[in-house]
Amino acid sequence: MVFPSGTPVRKGHPVATTTRIEGDAAPPRDRSAASPRKRLNGSRWTRIGIPYAMLAPAIILFAAFMAAPILYTLYLSFQKKQVVGLGLGSGGSSQVFAGWENYAAAFGDPEFGASVGRVFLYGLVLVPCMLGLALLFALLLDSPRTRAAGFTRVAIFMPYAVPAVISSLLWGFLYLPAVSPFYYIFDKLGWDAPQVLSSNLILFGIANIALWGGVGFNMIVIYTSLKAVPQDIYEAARLDGASEIQMALRIKIPIIAPSIVMTALFSMVATLQVFAEPTTLRPLTNTLSTSWTPLMKVYRDAFTRDDIYSAAATSIIIALATFALSFLFLKIVQRRAFGQED
């Protein structure tokens, strides 16, 4: 079998892509088939009531811990603190309706725009590196010639188990010339080491921490979907004389495209919400401001500046932007990755 370039195995072997779609569509059909039988036992009330009773815990928890805080945040974002005179003692301040004021202030704040710009740059550096490395490691681990695959897989995954704050502290030590073994070695060799905490490189330094922590997780996601690919495709390809590299590029990657899209989405959302790494590194350097990323600005406004109202407005903006970008991204890649004909 020869694989024409550009049109990968999707048409010849619709294994992963179409089964997935069928798999999604299957349960309702099953249920409709089963329900006539169920209708025989129990009254009309139990028939309607039971599903809701079973859903109730989830609905209540969702309402109490997701919906209610979101609605309250929305409410707060249209409020503000109004102070009178010196603002001392009773009646010095009150909460009043602010209209769109908090939103206007967020969009009008050059620091907010700058933090968004930084995060996009950060994402441009991080997401391709993260997915590229995760995919590379997953393909290498999946290759039949790999030795000590189990150990390697765990070793690559391990950093994901380290909390971001801890890993940032560890990397922070490595980035500080006076206490870092790297700088010590460079110094002994007489080389000039780059100052990672300087304003030019700090973005890469933070991306490196996120990369170190995140590659393992994404690698596992991709690797798992590689393992789900039926082996007979590979056998067929081998019989046709395809090399391992050809198989990787023309069979494996197209088949696991949905998981790559999913990890890309995860990475993008994580990028927009980057917080722990720069916040932990901030006390070590002059190059990170208190509003270096949008989420840091939210934190500063809410907990340092006691202004929960503008923090709420900024949170809403970040949430909406995250949704919008996620949907836009899925819209663009969906047809290609999932092979839908819509």
């Binding site: 002059n286 190059t287 401001s289 340092t304 500046r305």
Partner: peptide, 19 residues
Amino acid sequence: PNVNVAYSAYNDEFAKAAD
């Protein structure tokens, strides 16, 4: 009444200056 704001402004502005 807004020491917090002045202090975070100090952090940001003097960090730039020190850099």
